[in-house]
Design a protein around this nucleic acid. Structure first.
Lengths: 349, 349
DNA sequence: CTGAAAGCGCTTACAG
DNA sequence: CTGAAAGCGCTTACAG
């Protein structure tokens, strides 16, 4: 005859049903409320009681049921990751980082891509958050830059962590990636190599990252005495194809720049394509720098010098932020980009 | 004075608390059990009762609480996606496809990367499945090929959908990608172009996809009267670097092949790198074909001919499979690869 | 076809 | 520091 429900097995996790809070309470000879206090790390438990119960929980491999806990708490143990349309590598790196932070926390990551151009995407996110009673959400660029979305989240009382190029909110809600600094480092590097006639292919002005990278680059050049004329600044769409079009404009000019900084690696690949077609040698006749340090950067020839972002750390910080108890006065989370020098630049001819 | 709990508001979803099954039951003048039957699409409800209640649910925007439902069902409304280490684009495409299938189903997708080389990864997956009481899991290559993992899942009664190059399980548990056919199409194409001395850089023999692609290629060549000597088959690791090493071996030989088929695009990029270094022109002196049709394929120059897999469809089928009620005798889910011809091949010189 | 009671495994609110 | 009662929002098991 099988064991009855009322005779819990110490190895209950492996055969039959898993142990519940009632089993633990009975076995430990305390009330379930006391067990609950221990699960929730309440200080209102005597040291020896706590130890006895914790030992028992370990022994039987007891883990509280997130569904039951969620129902009682009116909040699940799920973290949502909301994103629009970044590159695959970026999404995956943020996910890995977030999962690093969530490991052994009892929280899980639920992914939620959306289309921020759709008029009712904010409503869609709200439904998602409310129906799942999410514990919090990670906001990845570009949705992280949408103030209307954050207003909605504040209104419904959903905590969130925004990943963005620059601080847009309270420090307890931001992971700042300082794109301005990464772009400035590129400017310094190119100036040091001796480039004076440089150009930039920027991302869409609707992206905060594009603005920051552009201003960081232009500003740092200025500080070093180089003024970038309007014609040397071409806006593109962060895609390969748009990078090709922008490169054609810049490299087809009567006098072409000696170096081009691209707002991301995809557009840098577009510059490579056009340079190849036009017989312009990289880096001998043209220096190129990207941003992202994606896998593509080392697949190109010559390997592309690019700004690396520690995307996994970024994801880790955003998730960790959502696990913290309440605000407190934590410092701003931030992650610094840095230039990875490969073979796509040299002093101008 | 705010509304009390006991006076539900028709727009309860927007102000204060959301409506519950009790609210619906009271407003509709039926028991909560009847509402429950409607939620669960039980046929044991009279048509007019059903319509009345459904109209009311729509009106107040009622959605049953997945936490409460999960607790009562002893099973959550979460689908797990378990994967080891494929490329970022592949993971993201599977996720998008899965989310297509889950949209408006009330189910959500929880991601769970793991390291299948770690000795206790199966235990880790079991903990994940049992603690979250997952409704089912999607198994992506290479974990999808691990019979020990599937045995464990069967043992604990967790439904799963395996994505693999070939059928490894009952049809209600498989999404088959027919890599053999994709590879055969490459062989036919190269033979038609006139190539006789061809080579292949294969993925690791520990991957089912690598075996299928190799056998499909070799077999189709044989059927067309071309026998591939052992020396023309080089095993590599599905990475860029391993592709470089394999290409060096093949292209450094006294007599080099006129065409190389690579088990994936990353390794094809490695062939491009070596060809460039050795001054071998693609496609004039060497034809190259990849597998995956990743974004990389069109970033390379000349654009790479490659086998496309409909990864998003694959993810969609796997998730849809998990939502289906019970087995029944469904046909095998399968997705067909096909060759995308670009500019990396031509007849041999 | 419909419903009243008990229960899923936790926490909150209250009492001591 | 500890506990008994009620409740979170659903479903199951039983009855009619």
């Amino acid at each position: 005859m099988p064991r009855t429900r009322k005779e819990p097995d110490a190895r209950a996790d492996f055969r039959g049903k898993a142990a519940t809070i009632n089993d633990i309470a009975r076995l430990a000879g305390v009330s379930k409320k006391t067990v609950s206090r221990i699960i929730n790390r309440s200080p209102l438990v005597r040291g020896d009681t706590r130890e006895k119960v914790e030992a028992l929980m370990r022994e039987v491999g007891y883990v509280p049921d997130p569904l039951a806990r969620g129902l009682a708490f009116r909040r699940s143990f799920l973290i949502g990751m909301i994103y629009d349309n970044p590159t695959a590598q970026y999404i995956v790196d943020i996910q890995y980082g977030a999962l690093d932070a969530l490991r052994d926390s009892g929280f899980e990551l639920v992914v939620h891509p959306c289309d921020s151009r759709s008029p009712d995407y904010v409503t869609g996110v709200r439904r998602f958050v409310q129906q799942q009673k999410l514990h919090g959400v990670m906001l990845v660029p570009r949705v992280s830059e949408d103030q209307a979305l954050c207003d909605m989240l504040n209104e419904i009382g959903c905590r969130y962590a925004r990943i963005a190029a620059v601080s847009l909110d309270g420090p307890e809600k931001m992971v700042v990636t300082h794109d301005r600094d990464g772009a400035a480092e590129v400017a310094d590097y190119l100036q040091t190599l001796g480039h004076r006639d440089v150009a930039m292919i920027t991302g869409p002005a609707a992206y905060r990252s594009a603005i920051e990278r552009t201003e960081g680059f232009v500003g740092a050049l200025q500080r070093r005495g180089i003024e970038l004329p309007k014609s040397r600044l071409v806006e593109a769409g962060y895609t390969f194809e748009s990078g090709v079009a922008a490169a054609e404009k810049l490299l087809g000019a009567k006098k072409r720049p000696t170096a081009i900084f691209c707002g991301n690696d995809e557009m840098a690949a577009g510059v490579y394509r056009v340079a190849l077609r036009m017989g312009i040698q990289i880096p001998q006749q043209l220096s190129v720098v990207g941003y992202d340090d994606s896998p593509l950067a080392s697949r190109l020839w010559p390997p592309l010098t690019s700004v690396r972002r520690d995307t996994r750390d970024t994801g880790r910080m955003a998730a960790a932020m959502l696990l913290q108890n309440e605000a407190g006065s934590r410092p701003l989370s931030s992650v610094r980009p840095h230039l990875v020098i490969r073979d796509s630049c040299q002093p101008p001819a």
